[in-house]
Design a protein around this nucleic acid. Sequence first.
DNA 1: GCCAACGTTGGC
DNA 2: GCCAACGTTGGC
Length: 153
Amino acid sequence: MNYWLMKSEPTSFSIDDLIKRPKQTTPWDGVRNYQARNMMRDQMKIGDQAFFYNSNCDVPGILGTMEVVSESYPDPTQFDPESKYFDPKATPDKPIWFLVDLKFKEKFKQIISLEQLRKNPYLEDLIILRKGNRLSITPVTPKDWSFIIKLHC
DNA sequence: GCCAACGTTGGC
DNA sequence: GCCAACGTTGGC
C-alpha cells in the first residue's frame, strides 16, 4: 500500500465539501501537471491512503485522511468545453489527464499545520517541506505517514 | 534541443 | 501583495 499527500485550496474544494459528497467520494479532477498525473495514473492503487492538505490559505496544513477507491481513468473535465479544466488537445480516444476517486476517511480534531510539520526534524525529507515544492500530489513514506498520524492524537 | 519569456503555485 | 521556484511554451 502507498501513502500520498494531496493539496487542495479550501476556497475551491474543502474537506467539508468532500464530506458532503454522495458516498463522501470525489473524483480528484483538475490536475494539470504531468508528474502529478503520472502518480495518479500509474502508481495509485485502490486502498492507498492520502492526506488531505490545505494550500494557499491562512493556515496551510493537513486536515485529515482519504482513501483511493478507484483505478485511474480519464478526467472527464478535459473533454468539457464549459469546464475551466478543458483541454482542447485531449480527445476521448487520446485522453491526456487521468484521475482517481478519493473517499473521505477521517477529519482530525485539529489541523496539523505546516508550521507544526516544519518543527519536526524527523520530517525533513517530507516533500512538501522542501523549498520550492509546488507539486499538488506527492508520495509520503510509511514512516512519515505513521509519524504524522500520531501527531494529531 | 536550447533557452528566454511567460504563467502558476503557494508560503509569507 | 510580493516574490522565489518551478513548469510550459514557442521561436530559433
